[in-house]
Design a protein around this nucleic acid. Structure first.
Lengths: 207, 207
DNA sequence: AGGGTGAGAATGAACGTTCGCTCTCGTATT
DNA sequence: AATACGAGAGCGAACGTTCATTCTCACCCT
């Protein structure tokens, strides 16, 4: 039946695409976007250039697909946090996942992506929706935590969102640059420090 | 006199070198290390390739010189902070300088440098001493502030140093990526938040 | 038989770098 | 004082390489 056949073919195409993306991600993490030639990707994927170009029209398209995947993964992880009752614990848990040793290296490409996106408009367009989504999610979490009293309501949510974003990306960056700093192991401590930062001030005891 | 003549020649060489470095920095900030061809640098410096290569043996050497300059500048700014009586204010002042709008763009290349250094061993070797110096300086500042009581002595200085470094680089990164977030304008607020984070806990009032 | 698939050589552009040359100018020789 | 010389600065075409991409053709599978 043509339906079944088509399905099998589509499956094959998807598998090949995935193989290419996986190989490219490995190369990009090792050598960077610009340090990775298509030949390297082909070698990593055990595939000829001619074959590869049947699945992606250009190197940039591969980069775009990978960046999109990574950002989607990031958004997904963040989405899980909203279920956590405690804001700070949730965010730290989030970072724990991002910085996981064995994981599918969600964070490994971050410096590369940020550097590239800061100057490549196409990449910027791709990541912008995800960044905005994450941003709004953090903002909403902050507002919620201010209502539960976990965060001092006097703090401007926008200020805090910017600071949280900076801390998050900074930690990802440093974990990459200085593995021996044990960033991941220090996360719980950081969580406690941040909790102190945003906690409402102790009221003078006047009933 | 040969001495005077020699001096003039050396002056010229230094000027030319500086011209090249300045042109290269402009290009690198605009297009990134890999997006900048030597032809572009030559055009920006109004100089032929042949002339340029009399002053630097390779593109990598130019990158190395620029990175070294930038890191030295960074270390210099940090050095000024140690004179500030108040730690947090000093660090924030530091960031204010890094993120200055008009400045010689100390921070503009940071994402590029970090991404490149995370994979290029030569670059890594160049920036390592500066990073270590900055690290030790921050650590010393923290220890000092703990003695003056500005920082809770119960906080591990190493933890705090890692967190401070991450925040600093994260802010530089975001200021680059999201200019409309007004990172610089929010710095004083961030300073106040961080001060809350590290402040010693209020003691129960029992005399 | 023929449409989808793959291999790998081929292509042209762009890159970092070099080469051969000219020009400038301070110094030494006369 | 005038001339000849040489070192270094500068130029821009050219080199060899590498890159992303395309072409050609053989090979399936049905």
């Amino acid at each position: 039946m043509s339906l079944v056949e088509t399905h099998t073919q589509q499956d094959h195409r998807n598998e090949q695409r995935q193989r290419i993306l996986s190989a490219a991600a490995t190369c990009f993490a090792r050598d960077g976007f610009h340090g990775t030639s298509m030949q390297k990707v082909c070698a990593e994927a055990s595939m000829s250039p001619g074959a590869l170009y049947r699945y992606f029209p250009s190197k940039e398209a591969i980069i775009a697909a990978i960046v999109e995947n990574e950002r989607a993964e990031r958004a997904r992880v963040f989405d899980n946090v909203s279920r956590s009752a405690n804001l700070i614990e949730g965010l730290i848990g989030c970072m724990m996942e991002f910085l996981a040793d064995d994981s599918a290296s969600c964070a490994e490409l971050s410096p590369e992506i940020l550097a590239e996106a800061s100057r490549n408009p196409k990449l910027r367009e791709i990541i912008e929706p995800f960044e905005e989504e994450t941003r709004q999610m953090i903002r909403a979490l902050i507002l919620g935590a201010q209502q539960t009293g976990e965060i001092d309501p006097a703090i401007d949510p926008d200020d805090l969102q910017v600071l949280f974003s900076a801390i998050g990306d900074g930690l990802i960056l440093h974990r990459q640059m200085h593995p021996h700093w044990q960033v991941r192991e220090r996360l719980p401590t950081f969580g406690r420090l941040i909790a102190r930062m945003v906690a409402p001030p102790v009221k003078a005891t006047q009933p």
